[in-house]
Amino acid sequence: MQLDFEHRITAHCENGVASNLLKNRGLQISEPMVFGIGSGLFYVYLPFLKVNHAPGLSYRPAPGWIFNRLAKRLGLKIKRQKFSDKRKAQQVLDQNLKDNIPCGLQVGVYHLPYFPEDYRFHFNAHNLVVYGKENGQYLISDPTMEVVHRLTESELEKVRFAKGVLAPKGHIYYPIHIPEHIDWEGAIVKAIRKTCSDMLAPVPIIGVRGMRMVSRAIRRWPKKVGVKKANYYLAQMVRMQEEIGTGGGGFRYIYSAFLQEAGHKINNAALIALSKEMTTIGDLWRDFAVDASRVYKKRSNQDDVYNKLADALLRLADLEEQFFKKLKKSV
């Protein structure tokens, strides 16, 4: 059984699942619109939380928030379920497929057989769509992949019940109601204000302040934890930043695309101009990643490299502070 569902590759998994599921239900919404209206751009530094033996850093809000905020602002209703019983989780999924409902699932990536070995970490906030079942195998539309895949019942069960931080617990979700009329302007304005207040939040670990805190930490790393560990921390930071479209440059470009599309949609020329500015900031995030990757090529002058990277991050924080202040005034 294969449901009528069109697989489209996107830059980020949660946006992609939301956009693909909504398009399937007849609401034409692009990935950047999902990301923007869901206020997906974020920055938080969690030094006390070790992820893969390095300080935690996130460039997005908690899993599920993007889709939830999008739903709230557009007046959609999403059904979400979690399970303690693995059999029940499969029954519900099978029943939904019979009822012609493609389902979004939160999964862990470690046990995903179609993921490259280098990407298989115990990271549990990945999202994909199941859109059918044939010969005991589930048909999988993973929005970070170019083509569709298949998983056996036991493979799917394993990823749905991965353990650890943010364990998915069989989490399944799908839209059940899309309103006739949508107030795009109201949604866009609210979403932009939220992103601005997140990024300018008066909290030391969040938004531009979080970036400044990370910048201070980077400067200290080589002395505090030694060059070897510092290099490892930095590698994890860049991986979080640029992996499969998430984080630094990748997210800035999606947000720029959102500002451009939103600007046209609600006739706000300021947003289109700001889109260009955000693109430039995105380019600088990518320069940061390139500079960081140089650490692994030449071994000399380590302290200086870390100071330079810290300065670059400070500059990004300053640019983004100005940017979000301007953005706040434009809506």
């Binding site: 930095l234 590698a235 991986r239 640029e242 390139v290 692994y296």
Partner: peptide, 13 residues
Amino acid sequence: DAKNVVQDHTMQE
């Protein structure tokens, strides 16, 4: 390349 480099470094560690 930037990603390949940090990815390789992580795998080495």
